[in-house]
Design a protein around this nucleic acid. Sequence first.
DNA 1: GCCGTTTTCGGCCCGACTGTTTTCAGTCG
Length: 576
Amino acid sequence: MTNHEVAQRFQQIADTLEVQGENPFKVRAYRNAVEAIERLVEPLDEIERRGELEEIPGFGEAITAKTRDFLTKGTTKLYEQIKNAVPPGVLKLAAVPGIGPKTARALWESAGVKSVEEAEAAAKEGRIQTAPGFGAAKEKKLLEAINRGRRLSERLPLWTALPYVERLAAELAARPEVVRAEAAGSARRHRDTVGDLDIVVATNDPAATEKAVAGLSGVTEVMESGRAKVAAMTDIGMHLDVRLGRPEDFGALLHHFSSGQAHNIALRELAESMGLKINEYGVFDAKTGAERFQGEDEAQVYTALGLPYIEPELREGRGEIEAARRNALPRLVTEADFRGQLHEHTTWSDGTASVRQMAEAAIARGYEYLAITDHSHSLQIANGLSRERLLEQLDEVAAVRRELPAGFTLLTGIEADILADGSLDCEEDLLARLDIVVGSVHIRHKEDEAAMTARVVRALESPYLHILGHPTGRLLGKREPFPLDMEVVIAAAVRTGTVLEINASPDRMDLNDLYAHRAKQQGARLTVNADAHSTTGLGSLRWGLYMARRAWLTPEDVVNTYPLQELRRVLKPRTA
DNA sequence: GCCGTTTTCGGCCCGACTGTTTTCAGTCG
């Protein structure tokens, strides 16, 4: 059974127990297990083989035993007991935002409602408002929740959600009574996909700001509205939460709504052990209620707890608080650390800028080097380079290089297709001449996991391959990742000295944060590249940088932050 | 069900908004 399948079963257990009214902390324990499993890169089988299941955070005696059952028998006693206890439609109803487990159960038990459709029909016939605990208003809200649920988008890619929420925040910030307005939530943590939008606002007139939310461009409906919070629906199908506060509370407010739930829970538990209490208004002495700081500075929350500042990207409850307490937080890589990029295209294949234009754009960005890596021959849809055209391009690169200022180096290269058998789509004598060889899978990517993994591993074993480009091939919202055993791929990258790319194309962000973090843990080197197809495309680096930072990467982990001599030293030596 | 610089038992983050239950439960983040 795969990790995802085990996680789904624990999810189903949690959802069912919740509708059944079980102890909420037990439900949380199962949900924590789901999250812990979803962030594993290594298969549970492997971890079990080493006898280390119980070391997974959130895995105690019971969940370890049940996981073992799933792995060996495909099921476990509790799962068999609960799987038919609640109709699937009731679980779906409970999952509609705004409805919830208690309401779904009440409708099921008192009105016989067993699905979203039945709930809708019953509400339309006015049969809900007569049920105990319900009224006309609640019946109306139920219908609205069901309708809104249908318009709700799946999680959106960050590159869609972040500019959108930043624009709304800027609209609010422009208001006279607003002191500050910032995008918060998972968008500020730079998760690769975003499930809802959060904005925090420091305002001198909460009533006026509250009203203004309805008039923001893109807001289609206000669902809840109060002095501290407005919940709205937007035209991109995302919920928007705007939180309002006094300017002197802004630091605490921004912190609270920028951090993942697991981070906040862990932080508040730490505060409690120190005799302190944290909420979105500040840090307080638990006994006297005395406030420990005031102001707009988010970092003060950590200062009040005796901790160094924790960057938003790290606030996911993945051990960052423990690391902060040990003063062992990573010095996260920043945009200013980059000395160049190693995977870019020109008009020689499917780019829009010439070799010279790309070089000049790189110089303008302050880079010390740039590699030109156009597509290889077999990717004809992208005007891939034949042997003859690649040789011509090398002449042009050499000519341009001579005219560029000293201190900048234009590197030759190619993005060679990894063919179905794992070989590189370029002759060896050519590969041997190039400074940078990126290898990527573009075609025939629907094979099974074993075949895909073997294919990529064979490519990694090539003495010519420096960098594995966009390793999982995902396109956010459009294409799932290839079926790949990333644990095996990472191990092969470490063994062969091949660098793994975090491709920064906004719709790729590939490797993602989990894989990049695992790669770092296993001792792999990484590189972040825009995979630019234009001069402005070089600026897309930031989307990959976000993944790198979420993966706890430091400049030492990312080879294109190195000076050129150092970069050349760490690239795979040509031993063939 | 998990977990332990107080604890192997008794806790488990904390607050906003809504509706209808006149004192709070449900949902959300």
